[in-house]
Design a protein around this nucleic acid. Structure first.
Lengths: 256, 256
DNA sequence: TCGTGTGAATGGATTCACAGCG
DNA sequence: CGCTGTGAATCCATTCACACGA
């Protein structure tokens, strides 16, 4: 916060569509790669291909941010990287806590993508006293007794839950009570939170089940498959439709 | 996702909306919990609450499967568990391979939810020769040289990629060439696959960035949190737009 | 009576197609 | 010209509201 810069001509409508927001990180990643290769500009067509979407969608998405391109030329890579980063709030640093340092929590802590852009693992928290003090990814695990203190001292507003399913809601409640307003949930449970708190979930078994559904449909339809591939539903590159809740839960134990 | 041109009379209730398919696993999980508590029937209202959606949506979703409820009463839990399982293809066993047994791959292999319902880890594959033979989650890791053989011998059609970003596309290509038609990708890369192959992605940094976007918007708007908003639901959907900025001001500088 | 099942209304997101500018 | 930016058309999803049946 602390952005006093709340002001704008509001040339365009306020409020970027959720579907667009979900794609901005994808564009940003593609742009960063281009930037590292010192590519100065890209067309919507090229960038769209790199991000796995179609160009009309990309141009529409960018139109919500403003007119950052040059007709007949394309987009300036560096400039766009900056604009999208700012729009996503990545020009500031977000301290994050990970709660539940089991297999998954440890994997997340070790994940390099955290630090890379705007996020910083402020603390690792686990309920097991035996874990306390043990360093994971170079960060000492702290006991969950001090969860509230850790949140407050570090000004944490984003929490990652990687506990077993049963512990997720209680942990969530404590995080929220301590001031966290955004939660990324890896536990296979539906979390209930007060208004104003955002929750996104990542659930492995849901993703697998969705794949199984399509897989089954393919199998039941190999009726007219001449030498070539199946003529069933498919998609191009890799653009998940409007799905915004990929999942991949990993915590163990769960009635289901 | 791209849907091919499915020109076909549709055998009846075939053609369940993608958004509905994505929610079926959620309903299934809630139903399984009820089943374990020996609850015989549920109303759409109750089940919807447990799954974190609203009842109208749930009823509409179920209407695509058929008329499995009883007016004035609700749904038979056991029967619905069976119907949804069958619809999702979980009445059969899906062998799955996990490629890339690093921190994340190991965490996935240890995830209990795999075996629980329809899925079975058929093999763990890694490119590091030092890993070969080492058991992870009780399953010996195999070297990626034999990837094709493993896929074919086990009749694997679903693959999970948990490799570093750089290895993901090559691995994906090999999986597809060997016969895999559904891929769950944990690597932060856009995968390109032929038609007929489904890809779903799980991407930590994208999720965090989406949360950061909303977090930033909340921060920039802490002017009137007067709760003017109409009581909103408190669930964790994939949607859930935090507060809606009345006339928001999202910092979005614009160039010329 | 009560809760399901569903047409109709609404709202979003994607795609089309082309005007407009560099 | 080429490519962006965007109204208009289309498609999909959610919500409403009520008839219908156990």
């Amino acid at each position: 916060m602390a952005t006093g810069r709340t002001h704008r001509p509001a040339t365009r409508s306020r409020g970027i569509p959720e579907a667009t927001v979900a794609r901005l990180p994808l564009y940003l990643r593609a742009l960063t790669a281009l930037s590292e290769r010192s590519v100065p500009t890209v067309s919507s067509e090229e960038l769209a291909a790199a991000a796995g979407v179609n160009s009309a969608k990309l141009r529409k998405d960018f139109s919500y941010l403003g007119s950052y391109g040059t007709r007949g030329v394309g987009y300036d890579v560096e400039y766009l990287v900056y604009q999208i980063s700012r729009e996503l709030g990545l020009t500031q640093d977000w301290p994050v806590v990970i709660v539940g340092i089991g297999n998954l929590g440890a994997a997340l802590a070790n994940y390099g993508g955290f630090a890379s852009r705007g996020f910083r693992v402020a603390a690792l928290i686990d309920a097991d006293p035996a874990m306390a003090g043990k360093p994971v990814a170079g960060i000492p695990v702290q006991h969950s007794d001090s969860l509230e203190k850790i949140i407050q001292e570090n000004g944490v507003s984003i929490g990652v839950i990687a506990t077993p399913a049963g512990a997720a809601q209680p942990v969530c409640d404590r995080l929220v009570a301590a001031g966290v307003t955004s939660i990324l949930n890896f536990a296979p449970t539906v979390l209930t939170v007060p208004d104003g708190v955002d929750v996104r979930k990542v659930d492995l078994s849901i993703e697998l089940q969705i794949l199984a559904f399509h897989e089954q449909r393919k199998a039941g339809e190999e009726a007219h498959t001449d030498g070539a591939g199946p003529a069933a539903a498919t998609r191009e590159g890799s653009d998940d439709s409007a799905d915004q809740g990929p999942d991949g839960d990993v915590p163990a134990v769960m009635p289901a």
